[in-house]
């Protein structure tokens, strides 16, 4: 039996090892293995790889370092993102964890109180809301109510409806997004974390492009092509990659 006869069987061995083959495919593979020393040897190799993976431990944190994690998270949640300080890993001594959580709770409450007293909806707030909710109506309101803000222009340019067109158009002007690109990218990344979509990844790439970060933009465009080859955004991403290659 030569290598050509074995094409595909090695991949099936991986699925077989994880119990992901149906009975028929499993029987076909087993029959092949009886007559094929090459694939039998490959199976042994894969078994060794699996055993090697099993040797890698995870150092779990001692329980006392996790104390107060939930309280700490709730405290952090009350602090505006720009003012957040402190991470659980920096609280190395277990005795400090509870005290730090209490301090954070106090700081968070003060920050919330200050925020409520001085709160005024800004273009930034509305933009963030709109991006998170992918809300066309809110994007329009933002563009109407804060027509001169940078973020309103960004919001107009990033409107999902714009992406329905077959032609993505020229790259966004740099001054539209450069001021707040990081915030916009951060919100899009959060959305992608929660619910990946080709549209958000494409928008993220557009922001990188506007920021003139070509390597990062290319990476995102390629991710759209790779992960969502059947979406309309794959075509748009392909066009952008061609533009960048010129």
């Amino acid at each position: 039996m030569d290598a050509k006869d074995c094409e595909g069987f090695e991949d099936l061995l991986v699925l077989h090892g994880y119990g992901e083959l149906d009975a028929q495919e499993g029987a076909r593979l087993e029959a092949h293995l009886k007559d094929c020393p090459r694939c039998a040897s490959a199976r042994e190799d894969l078994r060794r790889v699996g055993q090697a993976l099993d040797t890698v431990p995870v150092p779990m944190p001692p329980p006392e370092r996790w104390d107060g994690l939930a309280a700490q998270v709730l405290a952090l949640a009350a602090v505006p993102a720009g003012r957040r300080r402190g991470s659980i890993s920096s609280l190395a001594r277990p005795g400090l964890v509870r005290a730090a959580a209490v301090l954070l709770l106090v700081a968070g409450a003060l920050a919330v109180a200050a925020g409520l007293l001085g709160h005024r909806e800004t273009a930034f707030d509305a933009y963030a809301q709109a991006i998170r909710a992918r809300n066309d109506g809110l994007l329009e309101r933002l563009a109407t109510e804060f027509p001169d803000s940078d973020l309103a222009r960004v919001a107009r340019d990033l409107s999902p409806r714009r992406m329905d067109a077959a032609d993505p158009g020229p790259p966004l002007p740099r001054d539209h997004v450069v001021v707040h690109w990081e915030t916009a990218a951060s919100y899009l990344r959060q959305r992608i974390d929660l619910s990946p979509s080709p549209g958000d990844r494409f928008h993220l790439a557009e922001i990188y492009l506007a920021k003139q970060d070509r390597p990062e933009a290319l990476e995102e465009y390629r991710a759209v092509l790779r992960d969502y080859p059947d979406s309309q955004f794959a075509m748009l991403a392909g066009l952008r990659i061609e533009q960048l290659a010129q």
Partner: peptide, 19 residues
């Protein structure tokens, strides 16, 4: 990295709460 993993776990839980 264990410390980074702890921080990111905290961040993940924060995002759970917020989102």
């Amino acid at each position: 990295d264990a410390d980074e993993a702890m921080d990111l776990t905290q961040e993940a839980m924060l995002r759970v709460h917020r989102s």
